[in-house]
Design a protein around this nucleic acid. Structure first.
Lengths: 336, 336
DNA sequence: TTGAAAGCGCTAACAA
DNA sequence: TTGTTAGCGCTTTCAA
């Protein structure tokens, strides 16, 4: 193993103290170091191919310039895009992110938090999963900077950035109604996660405000992580009723759904209108490209990171942000 | 800020030295510590909610249990899946991974390598981009454990794991021919990356071995990162010729391609057969689900990590691994 | 303008 | 069986 070169090596070679080398290489108290000496030190550093040891620096400064990110399910494009947005922004601010995926599992989430804390991350961004309120409270208690992303718990005070789920869902269903659909079904999740409940609430409110009655039988609530078969069964049950449009509460459900609708040879949009919350690559490739709610992923990533950086730099005030989604209208919801 | 509790705090509370506490908490020289004392130390640790500082540990042991991973383009599902596979496997082995995306850019790649080295990662896994041979040589020179993944440079000796690109491409084209397609075009990349050249070579060889002449006009080589328009133009040029099947060299190209073919209302598979190297979610949703080469992503991730761990633990021998892809036949390439 | 020295939290060689 | 101590590579206070 090549011995790594340290400040000490440079100091010895130049014949000065390590302190001075540290000052020079970090451009601190610039004016108070002899120009020639400074130049010599810098030159020696490059000659020896010096690379500062961040671990040592971190130990000393108590700052790792690292943040932890926990997404709910990295195999979902929403998660990977959010991760990417945050990483891009982190890099611009000289932070490195370590990423974990909780897989919608509370224990896994706890484990990741612990790993992050042991590694002395400066802050954490979490897309929290069900039943992790205690974890959030704990983070608050130990006073580590963190922000919740995409999801939050109304009963737990915490910085968070999320989408206006209610508004976006309302917009989607309102759009379907305005297009002339009269019997709109929804495939949603049975969950304690408020951000998802909000989507369902948006659906119901949009119906009501448009003088369409909300029928319980038209709202199918599946468990998270449900199978293709379960989605198909739900669709079967909906199609037995006079349903002429479907609103999917997530990209995963929509993706399962259109695969099935494809198989059934149902005519979209004329026999069945479709809108999906969040996108899939599939959305564009379906024979009738899907109308969907575009989530402001980049904005969410950026904002969450900047709120976190604010916290890290000591800001106390709680910050929450609620960003509007956008309805992208394509063929699947426009009667011909 | 809650003061973090350290070994020292525990030592003081119990009235022993930090050394002893360290031994007990790490279960070292177990038998040689008084049972009662050990119990007391452990209890105090939990009471104080002690959490070891990995940074300090790393500085001392010169081991971070962290590996760096550089993928070529995190927005591509291939990359995110590979990242996921590696992370899963890393976690099982008590490693944390820090992830970077080079965006097919050599400078970005160099920057990431530098960040990783400064952070004292124990090893690096890289999907190298064009013109980064020097970087690979440098890693070799400074003697840091690393393995190349998915791609490699024949002229640079290095551990790597990759797919049998030639074999998989051959299999794909051979399948088309066996299905009765006679005029097969290919949309490929113009690149110095050998793993992609191998796919083109597989195409040409499969034609030759089946007594079909290879026509240069049927091989379109686009630059990496090309636009939808450029793909459409290439398809236009191919369709002017008597071409009855297309082989796409990547999921991105295939995705662009089928969007266009969808628009053109071409009948797949009867008027045009299609096979894609690597998959897209889109592949299943196209009206004629796509036949594609399934890359052994999990296996690649796993193997690369284990080779890296071997290197980290001191194994010297160079290891390379070449894994076969699998042809998943769906409707898009089967004449009816 | 420069340097000495303490110390971040931990491990491990050595001593008792 | 238990404890002392040096030191990982760095920053920063204080002194010269």
């Amino acid at each position: 193993m090549n011995k790594k070169v340290s400040l000490k090596d440079i100091a010895q070679k130049v014949g000065v103290s390590t302190a001075l080398v540290s000052y020079v290489l970090n451009d601190k108290r610039q004016n108070r170091v002899g120009k020639d000496l400074a130049k010599k030190i810098k030159k020696t550093a490059t000659t020896l191919n010096y690379r500062p040891n961040q671990i040592a620096k971190s130990l000393k400064t108590n700052k790792t310039n690292t943040i932890g990110l926990i997404v709910a399910d990295i195999s979902n494009p929403f998660s990977s895009q959010i991760a990417r947005a945050i990483e891009d922004e982190a890099e611009k601010n000289d932070y490195t992110v370590i990423l974990g995926s909780s897989g919608e599992n509370a224990e896994k989430s706890a484990k990741l938090i612990n790993i992050f804390l042991e590694r002395q991350v400066d802050g954490i961004i979490i897309c929290p999963v069900e039943n992790t309120q205690a974890q959030v409270r704990y983070l608050h208690k130990i006073n580590i900077p963190f922000v919740l992303l995409d999801r939050y718990f109304p009963e737990v005070k915490a910085n968070h950035v999320s989408v206006n789920n209610f508004g976006a869902a309302y917009m989607a269903v309102d759009h379907l109604i305005k297009q002339g659909y009269r019997n709109i079904g929804m495939i949603a999740y049975k969950t304690s996660l408020v951000h998802l409940q909000e989507r369902t609430r948006g659906y119901i409110e949009a119906l009501r405000n448009n003088k369409q009655s909300f029928k319980k039988s038209r709202l199918k609530e599946l468990k998270m992580g449900c199978t293709q078969q379960e989605v198909e069964k739900a669709i079967d049950q909906l199609l037995k009723q006079p349903v002429d449009a479907l609103f999917f509460t997530s990209n995963t459900l929509a993706s399962c759904g259109i695969k099935y609708i494809n198989k059934l040879h149902i005519q979209v949009p004329n026999d069945l209108g479709i809108v999906s919350f969040d996108e899939t690559e599939a959305a564009d490739l379906f024979y009738a490209p899907l109308t969907y709610i575009k989530q402001p992923i980049d904005e969410m990533g950026k904002q969450s990171l900047h709120i976190l950086l604010d916290k890290i730099s000591g800001k106390k005030k709680m910050i929450t942000s609620n960003i509007d989604g956008e309805l992208i209208v394509q063929r699947s919801s426009v009667l011909e």
